[in-house]
Amino acid sequence: MWNTKDVYYISDSTALLAEEMGRSMLCQFPEIGFNEEKIPFVREKRDAELTLARIMKQSGGLQPLIFCTIMEVEVRQVFAVAEVELIDLYGGFLDRLEHTLEAKALHQPGFYRNRDDAKTEKRVEAIRYTLEHDDGKKTEGYDQADIILIGVSRTGKTPVSVYIATHMGLKAANFPMTADHLDAYELPTDILRNRTRAVGLTVTPQFLHRIREERYRGSKYAQLVTCRAELQRSEQLYMQHGIQIVHTEGKSIEELSAEVTNLPGICKKERKLSAR
């Protein structure tokens, strides 16, 4: 088994998709260390030949991995040599699609990005909205939210909101359940008015206690009894107002984002944005 491996993400466009797809596979091998480099805009055969020569020099003939999303067959084939392991992410798949659809592909580098400017603008707007409505700010703007995450402190509201905005293009507001609302057993009217798009985040008291202890050791805020009381009251409010609940403990940001945006009634204007 290899201890380390050189990896190159090569494309005739930005190489973002090659990198994303390559990393999604390489993460399944946590025991191996990877030395990664992204090489975009390899569009001519001569560019490919120079790139391959540099790779061979850098990697010293140790079978580097190349994840490739180059459209032009002649350019792509430059990397199909015995000295490297070429993972062709487009060639075979695109050929198969042409056969299945009985149509010829454009074979145009970066075409998806070129036609996706409107989605990019929506994503930028979603990020702006999410940052402006983080941590309970500007609740009067919740009517424009695609999703509203609520929960007590340290249940993951902000990172999940930001991920949803940046990767899914959805406007995600988040609201902290503080003592004022928990003690009064009430939610702001701006949330209640939009409860069908609200999601309550929760964890176990023990997990919340451990998380809070890491930053505020020995504080009343971090005590197990405090965590238990806050979570119990917040969950009661969720159920009272028919707000869907998601448990965040032990889940990655990616998993949580997918889970909350796939709940019934939550807007799904865009799926994950990607680019070659």
Rank of each mutant, 00 (worst) to 15 (best):
E20W: 14
H247S: 09
D117P: 01
R23V: 15
S11D: 07
T261A: 03
E74N: 14
D12P: 07
D135L: 10
R154L: 02
I127M: 03
A48T: 10
K5D: 07
T155V: 15
R271N: 14
N262G: 04
G250V: 04
K57T: 14
R195T: 12
H209K: 06
A118M: 10
F67V: 11
K57L: 12
Y8W: 04
E132Q: 14
L182K: 01
F79E: 03
I55P: 06
F41S: 01
V203R: 07
V152C: 13
M21Y: 15
A18T: 07
M71N: 06
A18Q: 04
A275K: 13
M71P: 06
R212G: 10
S11E: 02
L106A: 01
L201R: 04
A126C: 11
F175Q: 03
G22E: 04
E74K: 15
I164W: 02
E254T: 09
D143V: 13
V246F: 00
H241E: 08
Y129K: 07
G141Y: 00
L256Q: 08
N3T: 15
D12Y: 00
G141P: 00
H107Y: 04
S13L: 01
N3R: 10
E85K: 09
V7Q: 02
A165H: 03
T226L: 08
G151S: 06
R115Q: 14
L89T: 11
R96M: 15
Q232C: 08
A82N: 12
T120M: 15
A222S: 02
I211P: 02
Q244E: 02
S59F: 09
K119H: 13
V124N: 01
Y9M: 12
P188T: 09
